[in-house]
Design a protein around this nucleic acid. Structure first.
Lengths: 193, 193
DNA sequence: ATTTGTTTGTACCGATTGGTCTAGATTATA
DNA sequence: TATAATCTAGACCAATCGGTACAAACAAAT
């Protein structure tokens, strides 16, 4: 029997994710992916199948490692109002620290759905819907505990918060400066104050 | 003396705009632009210089014909609160009517700034800043006339409204359905109620 | 040491990319 | 009718695209 496996597949996906994230799907060439991952051309096709399949792998990894990880941390706080507040603080901090202006991989992809198939569409939609669901759940629990005003409609406010989140990610890519992003985050907190 | 000009340059820019708007800058090939405009290859390069230059022309046309036109109409209402309300209604209506999910050309471009130069960046930034300025001005005038609550901070709320506008355009491209977009617009109006 | 299946490097594929250039048709002016 | 500028149509360019193929190097199990 020969090798079981050789190069670190997960590490390669991580590197490929950085390439797709930074350049976008179309603009990222196979040559870029080979250079970025350090994996050879043949091995890359053997392991992942092709460009589109590799992209899906990287998008799933981003969703798992970033979005799901953040939501899990915030849920663990068991303090809905604080969780929402920290969410916005963290997104603004990430955006400000992102000197390359790469933004959010999921949001970027949502603006590029025409270049992909239904699978990618489903991943993006599911991710954003789950963030919205987190907001709604947090508002409802916060209201039940008396931490959040009860005259707010959870479903509607959740959509507004998701909108502000998306906008921070979009406008953070070159249109708005740090101050403006902090202002938006502050307004988001004010809505549920 | 020969011809002064032949084909309708403005009409060609309009057609090219549709191509860039629908497919994005990178994905729109010269062949697409030739087919879309009906203008021959040589004439196209002779009249516009190249792909990037033509893109700038189309972006400027979109900004002028769409964004500037809408803002001018709304300003003419001379009713700040109504103007903001109508703005959101119109954007939602446009987004819902956009069955191809093309979204807003300016917003799409703002997510693709890495593919362009400083000139494109400046166009996008100026456009979005002027929308924000319209919001701020409307809020201030509305407050002065007693139509809008005076405890709102115009500059901050203007950024929030622009954020919601951008989010409607982004999420309208496949993530959110008509109902959700209307909900966001309603929340925007509620903020300045 | 042979076997087995992967990794690597590179050559190669057809297709397409943005862009240039030329030849000839076209049309208004002189 | 001759002229001048622009049009059309398409050949042509080097470069790059995503993807395939293949031979040699390689490492583990038999």
């Amino acid at each position: 029997m020969p090798w079981e496996k050789s190069f670190d597949e997960e590490a390669a996906v991580e590197k490929a994710m950085q390439v797709f994230w930074g350049k976008g799907f179309e603009a990222a060439s196979i040559a870029d992916l080979i250079e970025g991952t350090g994996v050879n051309r043949g091995s890359l096709y053997n392991a992942f199948g092709g460009k589109q399949a590799l992209f899906v792998r990287t998008l799933l990894k981003y969703d798992h490692d970033t979005r799901q990880a953040i939501l899990a941390q915030l849920e663990a706080l068991d303090d809905p109002k604080l969780a929402i507040s920290q969410f916005f603080d963290r997104i603004v901090a990430d955006t400000v620290a992102d000197t390359e202006h790469k933004g959010c991989f999921l949001v970027n992809t949502s603006l590029d759905l025409s270049a992909h198939d239904a699978e990618v569409n489903a991943i993006v939609v599911k991710a954003l819907r789950e963030i919205e669901a987190f907001f709604r759940r947090s508002i409802e629990v916060g209201q039940a505990r008396g931490d959040i005003r009860k005259d707010l409609e959870p479903a509607a406010v959740a959509k507004t918060l998701l909108s502000l989140l998306v906008a921070i990610r979009v406008l953070g890519r070159g249109v708005y400066t740090e101050d403006a992003l902090h202002t938006i985050a502050a307004e988001a907190k004010r809505i549920i104050a």
